[in-house]
Design a binder for these strands. Structure first.
Length: 259
DNA sequence: ATGACCCGCGCAGCGGGA
């Protein structure tokens, strides 16, 4: 079973690249983030023609998550349970959860946390706290669980190029890293780090100042596996070739293979 | 070489990304 995640930075801009990637990589499931469109504008047919069915949680201009799968699956959640929307209405399109082949898979796009001042950062932490609580509940029931997507956290100092971010950036703040550790302490395994214990394994490179050419990146896209799934982990990789394409997303796809 | 990104929105330039 091959599961992948990719922050595409607008699915309408990247549909052809996603099609090509599905054709080449043949994942069973691809989780997408930053669709930047409403569900009705998602180019569903581009992927149906390749045998992938889509579930979409969209929103105008911002956020947006989806799951594409070529194996049968059910939609379980269209939002992160237990998260109270910020005052003025609907929850942001940052989470969806499916079940496929006996595995529950949460596809997520955590808030960046650098905009909106201190309240914006607190909103990020509240969102992560809800993710931790939800993960804890699923694991308490021994649910085989994958949490994958753009966590907007560099877990450790190996996970960013030296000087790539200010020390007080929301992606490296101790409060953010503590939330990531809480997810690991629940019993989840960081798939990419499990198979590459040390050194840089970046998944994001800024568009600016030749960051990709200079390999000044960040590791912020993660795949976390519950214990029985971690035992089945055989591969975990970042597809840097996708980031090297013409007009790429600033994120590369991350994929894992479970025996 | 005194500059150097990319989205959506909507038609100028701004908010957000990370």
């Amino acid at each position: 079973m091959k599961i992948a995640t990719w922050n595409v930075n607008s699915i309408r801009k990247r549909a052809a690249q996603v099609q090509a990637w599905l054709t080449r990589e043949q994942p069973d499931i691809l989780l997408l983030q930053e669709l930047k469109c409403e569900a009705r504008d998602f180019p569903e047919l581009d992927f149906a023609s390749l045998g992938y069915r889509a579930e979409i949680v969209g929103q105008k201009a911002y956020n947006g998550v989806a799951a594409l799968a070529r194996i049968p699956f059910d939609l379980r959640e269209r939002a992160l349970p237990g998260l109270t929307p910020a005052g003025d209405g609907l929850p942001e399109a940052r989470y969806l959860e499916i079940a496929a082949a006996g595995v529950v898979i949460g596809g997520l796009y955590a808030p960046n946390g650098n905009s909106g001042g201190i309240e914006g950062f607190r909103r990020k932490l509240r969102w992560l706290d809800a993710l931790i609580a939800h993960g804890r509940a699923l694991l308490a029931a021994d649910t085989p669980l994958v949490l994958a997507g753009d966590f907007n956290i560099c877990p450790d100092d190996d996970d960013l190029a030296p000087g790539a971010l200010a020390p007080d950036d929301a992606l490296v703040r101790p409060e953010s890293r503590a939330r990531y550790r809480s997810l690991l302490w629940l019993g989840m395994t960081d798939a990419l780090r499990a198979l590459t214990p040390e050194g840089p394994v970046y998944t994001f490179w800024d568009y600016q100042a030749g960051a990709f050419a200079a390999d000044r990146g960040l590791r912020i896209d993660h795949v976390l596996l519950s214990p029985t799934l971690a035992e089945r982990l055989t591969r975990a990789e970042v597809d840097r070739a996708a980031r090297a394409a013409e007009q790429p997303s600033d994120h590369a796809p991350v994929s894992v293979t479970l025996a």
